[in-house]
């Protein structure tokens, strides 16, 4: 299970990458593997605002519907439109081409509440 060291993680299995113009959010390798074949992604509209922990997207596999929660509060500044036609990118490259949403954080301090790669790895072990 890949857990890149340079990302931060939410307990609900989203990852966050801090970039100059916002934070990119996706789902972790563990999450995409658990869901199985992803066949549909419903992403938020640009400009929508979410609080930390609020459902902001939905990903569906053949069998299941999964809510994706905002790992930190913020405003949506970009969405991965490739997922409309190719939702399987989330399976194929969850930390790259399969990203979901880019947020402009409402409070950057919230980044400090996220888990490090090591801490997220420990959480996965305790869930296993």
């Amino acid at each position: 299970m890949k857990i890149p060291a340079d990302l931060r993680y939410a307990e609900s299995h989203e990852w966050v990458r801090v970039e100059d113009d916002g934070v990119v959010v996706g789902v972790t390798d563990f999450a995409q593997d658990e869901m199985g074949d992803i066949v549909f992604a419903e992403l938020p509209t640009i400009g929508a605002e979410y609080e930390k922990g609020e459902g902001m997207a939905v990903i569906e596999s053949v069998k299941a519907v999964s809510d994706i929660y905002a790992p930190i509060g913020g405003k949506v500044v970009a969405i991965n439109e490739s997922l409309n036609d190719s939702p399987e990118l989330v399976n194929d490259d969850c930390y790259g081409e399969g990203w979901l949403v880019k947020l402009a954080p409402s409070n950057s301090e919230e980044l400090n509440t996220l888990l490090s790669a090591a801490e997220y790895g420990t959480q996965l072990e305790s869930e296993a």
Binding site: G36, D37, V39, S61, K63
Partner: peptide, 9 residues
């Protein structure tokens, strides 16, 4: 068993 290689495959 609900899946092995993946439901679609």
């Amino acid at each position: 068993p609900v899946q092995y290689s993946g439901v679609v495959d």
